[in-house]
Design a protein around this nucleic acid. Structure first.
Lengths: 370, 370
DNA sequence: TTGAAAGCGTTACCAC
DNA sequence: GTGGTAACGCTTTCAA
């Protein structure tokens, strides 16, 4: 490993180290050179079909000699199949998406299919991929994650005879695996209420977004349901929504904390955002859970590490289920219309009774906020 | 959202909701029906080429009517190009891989190319993908992450005229972006030595593995170098290697802690494993950094959250660089043979002087270990 | 067992 | 402008 220039780079490289043949060998080349028909070469390569041992040897020798490699494109066209399944995921590097993929990958990857991932970062990507994948000759099956599809889009897939499974999004007539987000929001809020809180805030994603994600607003619905059931009046100033991002959650939390009557607890629609909430509390010397209880949603990997109380959804399992469903479909079988996954509150270290209701352990005392 | 059976599923779905046409429309169908030639249809679809406004309209109408969508496979074959770049990544859901992809995705995704990810979990995947991608008609360019390639494999790509960039792996003649792992290991160990440690352990990956990863052993080399320079004798019992996994690191740490003379510091070859080390310390009431200093490698996202001291490598930037290099190559340009990225120790809260050497702040006291 | 030839669905070149 | 017609490289059917 040698040192380098100021920009960290070292000497240039030929555009294409052109020690290569001008013409890539095709099946015809092999056939000609081996003195056989193209069909025979194909037979040697694929079908365990009947080819005499001698010609087989000869063909193999020529293939080796010419370093022949069949063209995937030609193969796909001829076969009308790709042996590939596509997975469309918005922001696949986000923690929850990664968890889902962790479950999905092994099941899809085990069988006869290639697994390829299509990332979506913008509305254009979304449309482009959905369009491109639903046309014939690209993939044999798809699982689309977190993206609500239009009827027209679904139809395109069915018309193209491409089996489809939805994960974290529902559509009638398309097998999908989901959770009940409204119920999840209720669970989280009820946990807080049971602890004695009534000044409970909500932090989540914006209701309108380029992808029509609805889980955050569904969870907010559950939050409002729980409040109503408990006879607690909803306060508009306690509901903060901003892009799915730790920094943004940080800022929203600062707004919450500087309210004349700040909340004693906050339900955050995702663990990622909850981390931002936690950071804001720490930055402003608000003790968690002493002065502020925080409950998240998802139970991503770090949540356990930082002791975050959260509503756990089986992320990894959801991926595994969706993958299995697609495989079933690919094999010509049927799949249940809906797979509803269970939810569960994981009580860890960021929630506790509110300051006023507390008796035991010493804390920095109530009213110390800000 | 309705309730469901015990297995969380609801009613079955038709294998293929067959309200579809028997025959998917092809360009010929469109041409016939529009009373034009196939060439014309192609022209209205692609080349902004000269087509009369009237025929153009007519063709478009028929396309819409027939819901015609061009076959990607046929297109690829005819064009000899796929407008797709492939990225091969082992264990892409691992934290460091995700960070790299976070940098790679936006640059690859911005331009005229589709980005597709190929996951590698086994030696078979590795070989399969490398083989399949290096044959014509699959992708237009590739970046291979963390996988050392054989000369033969590299040759296949060059023969197929597929631009290739290596990330976190080197090969002469192939543009690659890397760090100096040996130096990184030395940096980490020197940090510990500077703090006053001399009983310094190492936890990392196994030297032999299915993918020939070498970064862990390179970092270990740096560790030994630093020790030697400082005149500290290496102790074999202080070197623990096991699979890249938090649980395994946890166990290895327990072994370290139960040594007659346990280390006062440990250099862990990755942050992921460092988290396991931290957990083991916590479990056994070993104060960090009071009784045990821990320094990791990578600086993944959680490291900041848990205050882990670590050797930072620009993961995200590495992805961005590799992506940019590939784009250059794709446009017929050249790329520097090697891009060497900088390393830096990020001093956070898990390292401090060893118990005996300490003067200031009160701790649980030395010798309290185990 | 094996060669010849007909697709597979596009694109691009060449006359008209 | 536009239609006809070769490729593109493979698989598969059909005879022989």
């Amino acid at each position: 490993m040698t040192a380098s220039g100021a920009d960290g780079t070292v000497g240039p490289v030929e555009p294409v180290p052109a020690h290569a043949a001008q013409h890539r060998a095709t099946i015809a080349d092999v056939a000609r050179r081996a003195g056989v028909g193209a069909g025979t070469v194909s037979r040697v390569l694929n079908g365990g079909a009947r080819v005499s041992e001698t010609t087989r040897r000869r063909v193999l020798a020529v293939i080796d000699e010419l370093d022949y490699r069949p063209s995937q494109a030609a193969r796909n066209l001829s076969l009308g199949t790709t042996s590939t399944v596509g997975v469309v995921v918005p922001f696949f590097t986000h923690a929850s998406a990664v968890e889902r993929l962790r479950g999905l990958v092994p099941v899809l990857t085990g069988g006869a299919y290639d697994f390829v991932l299509f990332d979506v970062e913008t509305r254009e990507h979304r449309n482009h991929h959905l369009d491109s994948l639903s046309r014939p000759g690209r993939i044999d099956g798809a699982v689309v994650v977190s993206l609500p599809l239009t009827d027209a889009e679904v139809t395109r897939f069915t018309r193209a005879r491409i089996p489809l499974v939805l994960l974290d999004a529902a559509h009638p007539g398309v097998p999908h695996v989901v959770i009940d987000d409204v119920r999840g929001g209720r669970l989280a809020t009820e946990h807080l209420i049971a602890l004695g809180h009534w000044r409970i805030a909500f932090v989540g994603d914006p209701p309108t977004n380029p992808f029509d994600f609805t889980s955050s607003t569904d969870r907010r619905q559950g939050y409002h349901d729980a409040l109503a059931r408990a006879g607690i009046a909803a306060r508009p100033e306690y509901v903060k929504e901003g892009s799915h991002d730790r920094e943004v959650a940080f800022r929203l939390t600062e707004e919450l904390l500087s309210l004349p009557e700040p909340p004693t607890a906050v339900f955050v629609a995702s663990d990622t955002q909850a981390l931002g909430v936690l950071e804001a509390a720490r930055r402003h010397d608000v003790a968690v859970p002493g002065d502020l209880s925080v409950i998240g949603f998802d139970d991503i990997e770090v949540s356990r590490l930082v002791g975050l109380t959260t509503v756990r959804q089986p992320l990894q399992d959801s991926g595994a289920r969706a993958g299995a469903l697609l495989l079933q479909l690919l094999e010509g079988g049927t799949a249940p219309a809906e797979t509803l996954l269970p939810l569960e509150v994981v009580f860890r270290e960021t929630t506790a009774p509110p300051p006023t209701a507390r008796s035991g352990r010493a804390t920095s005392g109530r009213g110390a906020r800000r």
